[in-house]
Nucleic acid binder design. Structure first.
Length: 586
DNA sequence: GAGGTTCAACCTTTT
DNA sequence: GTTGAACCTC
């Protein structure tokens, strides 16, 4: 029998996973074991087996991951037609289908969520700081069913009021999307026991599902539906939003019959890196991954006096590795004889964003191009949102809601406009309208934002609801750009770089104080397994944190992986072992 | 209701 | 060391 070309480049375990029939599948896929490859191969294989594309659903966590997978699918099977989406988008689409057309659900941002909640808390007579209550609400919303039994009366009251005010304007926060989808599906299932929308569901990064999303999975599947859940419980790092590595085990029981496959060949990291990472993980149940990489991967550890020395050293090292753009390296030339690196091959990871800022400054000083994780996009989102509220207010929609979202001053400006002026604004060319608004409200729109808003306003004037027209496609980091990536450990998940720096590797930062120590281990595991060839771990003896200057010790993890760290002036342990091995051979 | 003062957080983050 | 929210004063 001729082997299917889709399966040709897969190893045996991957093939097995791709071709499971008549059972749910749980794939334990450690770092670099070909998770996405298995997922896409399975979709392609199912299609080839005659599955209708409409019976297939692939779910990822981020839009970015979804579009990347869609891109891969285009290559694997150009006819395509398979729905690749996120939990939230899927839920949003369902909501749109179930609501009357004139009542398009509007999703609010976290900022708006906070304001609305505070407003709600105050209107039920709560005094004092409402932030702890809000945090609790956000956490509880990740669960299903939501249990308010043991919660404070204050929280219940404020919650109720918050949800009422959302409902009054057809608003949903991100968690409501999932919660509402669950409610719709439960109701539907109660009415019609044949309700089975998909025959095959594939879920990526399953270790990140929240209990609510897990419930959604249960409702989407039923007899005759096969789920492939793929993920790595050891990379579960989103406990603060409800995810839990134990859910993967629960899947085995709840979705019986279920085949479990653990991929053990890793194509990214060298063996030395994999073994070091496994030591930090301290999970006896974790299988030892075997690297297909011939380079063992080296770990270097450096301790500095303070953050500026650390940053300088990192910047200089990057400069040296990349052949250099700085004055110094131009003088020295690339005398090291090492192969030069593209800046896009290098990432600097850190536990807390404040460390990233120091590093960014130093790189800027040296003239090394860098890009930071998408956190900074936040401010531009705020601009877009503000414009949205202003425009809606100008049109007189949901006046009370949109008013809350603007500052008093801004509100005054909008509401004081005469009807005549409003009408004039409405007919203004989008470009001019934006200019007028930016000036009146002191907004600084970047040209990209402006172009985007112009398009949105134009399409709105052709009859599209403004909220829909503005529904943004976030700009994501482009890792092909010739720049060093500065990322939090969390943001680095799913990415890979030949060379990785982990900065600020100090006790109480990595692992971070007062955090779940097991999750901190998994987080460091994620960090170590981002690199394929080389890791530089740095720490300092002194750190200024939250205004206080403190002396710090190296992270406990350093000691734990000491045997895997390359010692200065000495050959690394692994290489030596290799030599011994070779002697035996001859 | 604007403007100053005090007090406590301050980690990770996608949708 | 900075921010955001609540509270206080005029």
């Amino acid at each position: 029998m001729i082997e299917n070309p889709l399966l040709r480049n897969l190893n045996n375990l991957q093939k097995q996973a791709v071709m499971v029939q008549g059972a749910n599948i749980l794939v334990n896929a450690g770092p670099g074991t070909g998770k996405t490859r298995v997922l896409t191969a399975r979709i392609a294989w199912l299609l080839e087996q005659g599955t209708d594309a409409h019976d297939l659903l692939a779910i990822t966590f981020t839009n970015k991951a979804a579009s990347e997978m869609a891109e891969r699918m285009k290559v694997a099977c150009p006819e395509g037609g398979v729905k690749i989406t996120t939990f939230h988008s899927w839920a949003y689409d369902l909501l749109c289908k179930k609501r009357p057309l004139d009542r398009t659900p509007v999703v609010i941002t976290e900022d708006e969520q906070k304001r609305l909640f505070r407003e709600a808390a105050h209107s039920v007579g709560l005094k004092g700081d409402t932030r702890p209550l809000f945090q609790r609400l956000q956490f509880l919303k990740q669960f299903f069913p939501i249990d308010l039994q043991d919660e404070a009366e204050d929280l219940r009251l404020a919650w109720q009021h918050y949800q009422n005010s959302l409902a009054a304007h057809n608003l949903y926060d991100f968690d409501d999307l999932i919660i509402s989808a669950i409610a719709i599906l439960e109701e539907e299932r109660g009415r019609d026991s044949n309700f089975r929308p998909y025959r095959h569901i594939l879920i990526d990064e399953f270790q990140d599902v929240s209990p609510a999303q897990y419930r959604l999975c249960q409702l989407l599947a039923g007899p005759g539906c096969c789920i492939m859940a793929i993920g790595d419980p050891h990379q579960s790092i989103y406990g603060f939003r409800g995810s839990n590595p134990a859910l993967m085990e629960k899947f085995m029981q709840d979705f019986s019959p279920c085949t479990r496959i653990s991929l053990i060949t890793a194509y990214r990291c060298g063996q030395n890196l994999l073994d070091a990472a496994r030591v930090v993980l301290r999970e006896k149940s974790a299988p030892r991954l075997i690297s297909a990489n011939t380079i063992p991967g080296s770990i270097t550890f450096k301790q500095f006096k303070g953050p500026s020395q650390e940053a300088t050293w990192i910047a200089k090292t990057i400069d040296r590795l990349s052949g250099g753009v700085s004055f110094e390296s131009l003088n020295q030339g690339s005398a090291t004889g090492q192969e030069l690196r593209s800046l896009s091959d290098i990432a600097i990871l850190f536990r807390i964003n404040s460390l990233g800022e120091i590093l960014a400054k130093e790189l800027a000083k040296m003239g090394i191009p860098y890009q930071v994780s998408p956190k900074s996009h936040h401010s531009s989102d705020e601009n877009l949102n503000k414009i949205w509220h202003i425009l809606e207010l100008l049109e007189g929609h949901h006046v009370d809601y949109h008013s809350i979202m603007l500052s008093k001053e801004e509100r005054k400006i909008v509401l004081s406009l005469s009807g005549h002026k409003k009408q004039a604004l409405r007919t203004l060319e989008p470009v001019n309208l934006l200019d007028t608004l930016s000036e009146a409200f002191g907004l600084h729109l970047e040209s990209v934002e402006k172009a985007f808003l112009e398009r949105a306003i134009a399409s709105h004037r052709q009859g599209k609801p403004l909220s829909l027209a503005l529904k943004t496609e976030q700009d994501y980091l482009d890792f092909h750009v010739e720049a060093v990536s500065l990322l939090s450990l969390h943001a680095s998940k799913g990415l890979e770089f030949p060379i990785v720096f982990i900065a600020g590797c100090e006790q109480d930062i990595i692992p971070l104080k007062d955090c779940d120590p097991r999750e901190e281990r998994r987080l460091f595991y994620v960090g170590l397994t981002r690199a394929s060839e080389q890791i530089f771990i740095t720490c300092t003896s002194e750190r200024q944190l939250w205004g206080e200057r403190i002396t710090v010790r190296p992270s406990q993890f350093i000691k734990e992986i000491d045997g895997f760290i390359e010692k200065e002036g000495k050959k690394p342990g692994v290489k030596r072992r290799k030599k011994v091995h070779q002697k035996k051979l001859f």
